[in-house]
Computed example of a mutant assay.
Amino acid sequence: MTKLLLATRNAKKLVELQRILDHALGRHAIELVGLGDVPEYPEAPETGLTFGENALLKAREGVKYTGLPTVADDSGLAVDALSGMPGVFSARWAGRHGDDKANLELVLAQISDLPDENRGAAFVCAAALVLPGGKEHLVDGRQAGRLIRGPRGEGGFGYDPIFVAEDQTRTNAELTPEEKDAISHRGKAFRALAKVIAKTLLAA
């Protein structure tokens, strides 16, 4: 089995990518491990100004310190009325990295006076694969939609409870994992990356 590092400590993201890879490549084709499964190494800060820059930075670090082919993604919410922000700052919009509730509440507060027709937003994801030999691949995915006025649903993570995708009536957090994978920004990016993984890691 081919071992692949996903440079994240987010357990839900690991489960999500493993599910997508299993569906695209067949179960047990790839053994996905996270940062908690490899010896700890110094993680570089996400200093890129784009999702792609940050994804490549994290993937390169993973290869450098573990020698494993490494996938990393950077994703976030781009709100039309906030000129595309929080963008690359989505995970730390309220000041502390990974505080989903505070981040979500701050975004809602910032657009609280906007009518429903002006609450457009999109989830954006860039996913990178870096190989020990130095080859790099970068793909992206986008999910357009709108923000509602309060959280709904228990699934997903991040801003999922306040985001309703185009042609949907339920939030991302109300969708089943399979429904979300089919339309989400990360699902689109990771499915594109699965094709690259199949050609570069599983071709033999």
Rank of each mutant, 00 (worst) to 15 (best):
D37P: 00
D37E: 15
V38D: 04
P39C: 12
P39N: 13
E40W: 02
E40V: 06
Y41N: 00
Y41G: 04
Y41C: 03
Y41W: 14
P42C: 14
P42E: 11
P42V: 11
P42K: 13
E43F: 10
E43T: 07
A44F: 00
A44H: 01
A44M: 00
A44P: 03
F51Y: 15
F51I: 00
E53D: 11
E53A: 14
E53Q: 15
N54C: 07
N54Y: 06
A55L: 03
L57Q: 13
L57A: 11
K58Y: 11
K58V: 01
A59M: 04
G62D: 02
V63D: 04
V63M: 02
K64V: 09
Y65L: 02
Y65F: 15
Y65Q: 05
T66W: 02
T66K: 03
T66F: 05
T66I: 06
L68M: 08
P69F: 12
P69S: 13
T70E: 02
T70Q: 05
V71T: 09
A72M: 09
A72F: 08
A72K: 04
D73A: 11
D74G: 08
S75V: 03
S75H: 05
G76T: 05
G76Y: 07
G76N: 06
L77A: 07
A78P: 02
A78M: 15
A78I: 03
V79F: 07
V79T: 05
D80P: 03
D80R: 10
D80G: 02
A81P: 03
A81I: 08
L82N: 00
G84V: 04
G84D: 05
G84F: 10
G87V: 09
G87F: 09
V88N: 08
F89K: 12
F89M: 10
F89I: 01
S90T: 13
S90V: 04
A91C: 04
R92H: 12
R92I: 04
W93R: 04
W93I: 01
W93T: 01
R96M: 04
R96F: 10
H97N: 11
H97W: 15
G98W: 12
G98E: 11
G98L: 06
D99V: 05
D100N: 14
D100G: 07
K101V: 08
K101T: 13
K101D: 09
K101R: 14
A102C: 06
A102M: 06
N103D: 06
L104P: 03
L104M: 14
E105I: 03
L106G: 08
L106K: 15
V107W: 12
V107F: 10
L108T: 13
A109K: 14
A109W: 01
I111D: 02
I111T: 09
I111E: 02
S112A: 15
D113Y: 05
L114R: 12
L114M: 06
L114Q: 07
P115C: 08
P115S: 10
P115I: 13
D116Y: 05
D116E: 15
E117R: 14
E117K: 13
E117C: 11
N118I: 00
N118T: 00
N118Y: 13
G120C: 10
G120P: 00
G120M: 09
A122P: 01
F123L: 09
V124F: 09
C125L: 09
A126N: 12
A126Q: 05
A127L: 08
A127T: 13
L129P: 00
